[in-house]
Nucleic acid binder design. Structure first.
Lengths: 174, 174
DNA sequence: AATCTATCGTTTGTTGAACAACCTATCTTC
DNA sequence: GAAGATAGGTTGTTCAACAAACGATAGATT
């Protein structure tokens, strides 16, 4: 109850400027929970994302996988290694292109993913516990749509955002 | 082999399972844009968050700052160093506690933040460009509320989430 | 007052992810 | 079959997160 009480300034001032912080907060919490839940899955949430795409989509190659998840190729290498070692997916030579590998899920991989998805869905409800239930879905949906749009327009650098200095001109007069 | 068709499970299942990915996507884009915009600000978005709290709130100490932003104390040290070197904030000895430092913004810091906030707000509209304008605010608001709730309940590890193995029992028969 | 413990801020070391650069094998084109 | 492009893999650098230890100081105990 001291003078340092945060409520002393208008709430919307604080609100407006911390969208990035809010996102980070939510994502971090999601990440913590999911990492905890998916300890057994190689590379935790990372492996989960990859496994999910492998199971749910017919992925042509590793390169396509990387593009779809917007992650670096070099990451895929070792995650897929470990996922494969765990018997969840397999790397099969592509008969049409001997450079390429087709990554396919094993039955065990499918089961594992199904279980993981159940848990993650549950965890997500906790992550969004601060929101009434109906708004959670709204939030997920908005996030998904915003993300899709960003992913569709890959080059994130937009020339219409002018880049000068944020700093005000140095006041040399003093 | 159409059995592996991704549509074999309800579409919302797929949606539901990449909430983390979506969040990551949006946050990454936010981060990229803001880093670009705030190149001149020491430590980019990090410095921005800290400066924002310093300017907008009467922050008792560095420790309080760390708690408010949910970041590690050790991060604050060097970011504040550089923010101070840039003349945006000052570290003043707390007269009541000589261990503590009061971090206050300079006039230049206030101006810089104001400009930075303008830019960030603009960038955020681009980040959420995939959403119709009215929904952007909904999204921000939901994110803010979810984040606040998470922040309020700091211990992210929730005992109600049982932690067993995601992996199905090893099938030794084949 | 002497001392013990907790706290503030700083420093250091470890870990893990992101990313770039380079390598090998293969495909495609000429 | 040589040249360049592409798939995948390896290595090394950079950076943020985090834990742990440290010096200085405050507050409590004796």
């Amino acid at each position: 109850m001291s003078a340092s009480d945060p409520c002393e300034l208008p709430a919307d001032r604080k609100r407006g400027s911390n969208f990035g912080w809010s996102l980070g907060m939510v994502l971090r919490n999601w990440h913590e929970r999911v990492e905890e839940l998916l300890k057994d899955l190689p590379h935790g949430s990372r492996g989960y994302h990859i496994l999910a795409v492998v199971v749910h989509e017919e992925v042509p190659t590793q390169a396509a996988l990387a593009a779809r998840l917007a992650i670096d190729r070099s990451v895929l290498t070792y995650v897929i290694d470990d996922l494969a070692n765990a018997g969840l997916i397999e790397r099969r030579p592509d008969p049409q292109d001997r450079r390429a590998r087709r990554v396919v899920a094993t039955e065990r991989g499918r089961q594992t993913l199904a279980e993981a998805e159940r848990r993650v869905a549950h965890a997500e409800d906790h992550v969004l516990g601060g929101l009434p239930e109906e708004q959670r879905e709204v939030f997920r949906d908005l996030a998904a749509r915003a993300a899709e749009a960003i992913h569709a327009a890959a080059p994130a650098t937009d020339p219409c955002v002018a880049v000068r200095s944020v700093l005000p001109p140095t006041d040399q007069s003093g």
